[in-house]
Simulated scan of single mutants.
Amino acid sequence: MPDVTVRPMTAADARRVLSIYQAGLDGGHASFETTAPTWAVFDAGRLPDHRFVAVDAGGRVVGWVAVSPTSTRAVYAGVVEHSVYVDPAAQGRGAARLLLDALVASTEAAGIWTIQSGVFPENAASLALHERAGFRAIGVRERVARHHGRWRDVVLLERRSPVIV
């Protein structure tokens, strides 16, 4: 996607970030959540140094990536869980890969050794994207939670940094 660049996310991106998030939730295969949070909740739950947006040539935010800590325990300070979302109109053109690449660079520079995520097995595009970006499936969490009244499985993915040893 040569007309897309990645930059740090700011509060000024809130409306577009949450709109893209909601579009992903509406698709039914992105998250157990059904409604995007408020910006205050989104902001409080994600690490500020590892949030990025993909912006098209016209300056419009077309995707985002961010991480949350997986635990408050100090021994897990190097493990985060990420989310990546792209506007449906911009999907399939490389924005998600650019976002993941920026995230990997940022987290490795900060000493984070594992990025993980849970993806619905039906989300084949996300599973393929993550595999290309160096993530591996480490297992399936069967019937982990209900989504729209039915039990759903989640493929647990992780990327272990080869430079943080």
Rank of each mutant, 00 (worst) to 15 (best):
R160S: 13
V4M: 06
L127F: 10
R152P: 06
A14P: 04
Q91H: 12
S126I: 03
G78W: 14
A145T: 07
D56Y: 03
L25M: 06
V86W: 01
T114A: 10
S161C: 07
A11R: 09
R132Y: 05
V144R: 06
R15G: 13
V53N: 04
W113K: 13
V17S: 02
T10W: 02
I20F: 11
Q116M: 13
V104A: 11
W64G: 10
A12S: 13
G134W: 00
S68K: 07
R60I: 09
A102P: 09
V144F: 11
L157P: 03
R132Q: 08
W113N: 12
T70Y: 05
R15F: 10
H130N: 03
R146N: 10
V6E: 02
A105N: 07
E142P: 02
I115Y: 02
L129Q: 12
L99D: 03
A14Y: 08
S71M: 02
R51K: 09
G118L: 04
R150H: 13
L47V: 12
V17N: 01
G111V: 09
A137I: 05
A125C: 12
A89K: 05
D153I: 06
R136T: 15
A133K: 07
E142F: 13
Y85S: 00
L127M: 10
S68H: 09
G134Y: 01
G58L: 01
L25Q: 03
A14C: 07
V119P: 00
V144N: 01
A77T: 14
M1V: 12
A95Y: 04
R93G: 15
